[in-house]
């Protein structure tokens, strides 16, 4: 089988495995690493991870389908996740979803033609005090209105910022310039 991740990622995985009393605990990180390099988690990657960690492939597949942050098919380059749970719901999350539907012309789970965007609604992101909000890739955008979200989408199209959390570098991307990464306090 072809090497499923880069040497660098492989090295990182070895480091992570050493952190735990049992290397199997590194499986969630391994999945993140694969997803980071391939954009999603394929069946082949699952088999590769299973071999790396001496697990049965279906055990790894269980994890990919149990946890919502793993994707078995590619999302858009910018995946917008609108929190829909109560506080965000009370404060207008639905308007954000409607806006995305209108702006991108796609349904949740679909990818825009240019491959740049996809969106879905997700459950509580722990940002209820700054509702409504969304997470684009791994970066939070809080206290939103459809207008504010429009501006963010515009700027993403222009700036193409890194909004991902990188397990490889153990770091969140630089984000959208001038945008706070958190408004919790």
């Amino acid at each position: 089988m072809s090497v499923a991740i880069s040497d660098e990622a492989q090295k990182r995985l070895e480091e992570i495995k050493k952190q735990y009393p049992d290397p199997k605990s590194a499986v969630m990180s391994a999945l993140y690493l694969v997803q980071e390099e391939h954009g999603h988690i394929s069946d082949e990657s699952i088999t590769w991870i299973a071999e790396e960690l001496d697990m049965s492939p279906v055990r790894v597949m269980e994890l990919v389908t149990f946890y919502t942050m793993y994707y078995r098919k590619a999302t858009g380059k910018y995946h917008v996740q609108v929190c829909r749970t109560l506080s965000c719901g009370l404060c207008g999350a639905r308007k954000l979803m409607d806006y995305l539907h209108e702006r991108l012309g796609i349904k949740p789970g679909e990818v825009s033609e240019d491959g740049l965007f996809s969106y879905e609604h997700v459950e509580c992101l722990g940002s209820c005090g700054t509702a409504p909000m969304c997470e684009i890739n791994d970066t939070y955008f809080e206290n939103l209105t459809p207008e504010k979200l429009a501006g963010i989408i515009d700027r993403i199209q222009e700036e193409k910022p890194d909004l991902h959390f990188s397990t490889l570098r153990d770091k969140l991307g630089e984000g959208l310039s001038g945008c706070s990464k958190s408004e919790v306090m």
């Binding site: 969630m28 946890y67 919502t68 942050m69």
Partner: peptide, 22 residues
């Protein structure tokens, strides 16, 4: 890092998750 599952806040589910399981 978890990966998106409310139930992992339950302490034994958290432990299972940390062990590399659902």
């Amino acid at each position: 890092r978890g990966a998106g599952a409310y139930i992992c806040g339950e302490e034994t589910a958290l432990i299972e998750s940390l062990e590399g399981k659902k």
